[in-house]
Simulated scan of single mutants.
Amino acid sequence: MENTHDFRSPAINLIGVGALKDLPLELMPYKLSKALIVTDKNIIRLGYVEIVEKILKDLFISYDIFDGILHPDCTISFVEDALTYFKKNLNILKKDYHFIISVGGGTNHDCAKGIAIVATNGGDIEDYEGYEKMTKPSLPVITINTTSGSGAEVSNVAIIKDESRKVKMTIADPKMMPIISVNDLRFMPSMPPEITASSGLDVLTHSIEGFVSTEASPVTDSLAIDAVKLVFGYLRRAYKNGNDLEAREKMMFANVMGGMVLNNAGLGYVHSMSHQLGGFYEEVHGSCNAILLPHVLEYNAVSIPEERILKISEAVGAKANNKQEAINKINHSIQNLSEDIGIPTHLSSIGINENDLELLSKNAEKDINSLVNPRKGTFVDIMNIFKAAM
């Protein structure tokens, strides 16, 4: 029986202290001459965009800046606003934009990907919801990352909120994979504690969901388990002291590893459900993941081999003798970690209304992340998971 696994990531991933200094050398062979920088006003205020501008100037690459990302959820309106700006700022003396550089966290990277898709494929970003809906490669995208959580900088996935439907669309296609990603530790200490916490738990969820996904492979397994160990070893430290550079560096690597896991193994019901909470209630993605993860893991356990559950238990630092003991200890460890870094452990505490659960569950069932969940259920099963998390 055939059993193949693709592994995709940006062609070049620059990681570590001062990694951005290597970007000019990697950019030169592409012979690109005009860029659109996609970012937000806070990233500009921190001085990170200015560093990128200097690199482009030194390479004689012209550029414009779109800073219209106004909150931590990429929306259709952000993509549309950027595309309008994109068209207005074309220089008739030069060719159109050759590439896009996103500077910031996952929201900025997802917006850049959305712009890049429509720029070459036309239509509206909604046309590309789902898997492999593009007919042409997107504009080249370079992602310069400033957070440790979404993994968006190393994935060919974009999460974009459709405000009219109150859902988060998942758009996935290898033809929009960034060509270069940059994770430079110098940008990480600026993350406030609450973003450090929620993004770190997003990394944890990517890693555990990817490890139990039906598309997991030995390659993604190794990345996932080591990322879980790093999260449990260093997230508390990074949260308590943002200037703890060792903890920041470890979480930076965990983020890259978790991003590669999600991109190649997929996720599952946690993300299918969390996307609905983010779309309908505008709740913080990583926090929703952390609340849901123990309950989805409990539901999935019957379909996950005991050996894999025991490996997760060992990775979180809890030895167990059997599957159920391991599940209990994993879930207890996740909830303890959440409490230690100020993340809620129940949906009711963030204002989720039980009357909305049927609609949320039906939408979650349709989310493409549900396709690789290890246990196949119905929207009623998903609704019961929501209720258990209340």
Score class of each variant (00 low, 15 high):
Glu2Pro: 12
Asn3Lys: 15
Asn3Arg: 13
Thr4Leu: 13
His5Lys: 10
His5Arg: 14
Asp6Arg: 09
Asp6Asn: 08
Phe7Pro: 05
Arg8Pro: 01
Arg8Trp: 01
Arg8Thr: 10
Arg8Leu: 11
Ser9Cys: 08
Ser9Asn: 03
Ser9Gln: 06
Ser9Trp: 00
Pro10Met: 11
Ala11Asp: 11
Ile12Lys: 15
Ile12Arg: 14
Ile15Asn: 10
Ile15Phe: 14
Gly16Lys: 08
Val17Arg: 11
Gly18Ser: 05
Gly18Met: 09
Leu20His: 02
Leu20Val: 03
Lys21Ile: 04
Lys21Gly: 03
Pro24Ala: 14
Glu26Tyr: 07
Glu26Ile: 00
Glu26Ser: 10
Leu27Ala: 09
Met28Thr: 15
Met28Phe: 04
Pro29Trp: 08
Pro29Glu: 10
Tyr30Arg: 15
Lys31Phe: 07
Lys34Ile: 05
Lys34Tyr: 13
Lys34Cys: 07
Ala35Arg: 04
Val38Gln: 05
Thr39Tyr: 04
Thr39Glu: 07
Asp40Gln: 02
Lys41Arg: 14
Gly47Phe: 00
Gly47Thr: 04
Tyr48Lys: 13
Val49His: 10
Glu53Cys: 15
Asp58Ser: 11
Asp58Lys: 12
Phe60Pro: 00
Phe60Gly: 04
Ile61Asn: 10
Tyr63Leu: 10
Tyr63Lys: 11
Tyr63Thr: 13
Ile65Pro: 11
Ile65Asn: 09
Ile65Ser: 12
Phe66Cys: 06
Phe66Gly: 05
Phe66Ile: 08
Asp67Tyr: 12
Asp67Val: 07
Ile69Leu: 10
Ile69Glu: 04
Leu70His: 02
His71Phe: 13
Asp73Ala: 12
Asp73Cys: 09
Asp73Ser: 12
Cys74Tyr: 00
Cys74Val: 08
Cys74Lys: 01
Thr75Asp: 03
Thr75Glu: 02
Thr75Pro: 02
Ile76Met: 02
Ile76His: 01
Ser77Gly: 12
Phe78Asn: 13
Phe78Pro: 03
Phe78Glu: 07
Glu80Asp: 14
Ala82His: 06
Tyr85Met: 06
Lys87Ile: 00
Lys87Pro: 00
Lys87Gln: 09
Asn89Cys: 06
Asn89Gly: 05
Asn89Ser: 10
Asn91Pro: 08
Asn91Tyr: 00
Ile92Gly: 01
Leu93Ile: 04
Lys94Glu: 13
Asp96Phe: 00
Phe99Gln: 12
Phe99Asp: 12
Ile100Asn: 11
Ile101Lys: 12
Ile101Arg: 11
Ser102Pro: 03
Ser102Asp: 07
Ser102Leu: 08
Val103Glu: 02
Gly104Gln: 02
Gly105Lys: 11
Gly105Asp: 08
Gly105Trp: 08
Gly106Lys: 05
Thr107Glu: 08
Thr107Ser: 15
Asn108Pro: 06
His109Pro: 09
Asp110Pro: 03
Cys111Ala: 15
Cys111Ser: 15
Ala112Asn: 03
Lys113Arg: 14
Lys113His: 07
Lys113Thr: 03
Gly114Trp: 01
Ile115Val: 15
Ala116Ser: 15
Val118Leu: 07
Thr120Asp: 12
Thr120Cys: 09
Asn121Glu: 14
Gly122Cys: 11
Gly122His: 05
Gly122Trp: 03
Gly123Trp: 02
Ile125Glu: 01
Ile125Val: 13
Asp127Asn: 11
Asp127Arg: 00
Glu129Cys: 02
Gly130Tyr: 05
Gly130Thr: 10
Tyr131Pro: 05
Glu132Pro: 05
Glu132Gln: 12
Glu132Tyr: 04
Lys133Pro: 04
Lys133His: 10
Thr135Glu: 15
Thr135Gly: 14
Thr135Val: 13
Thr135Ile: 13
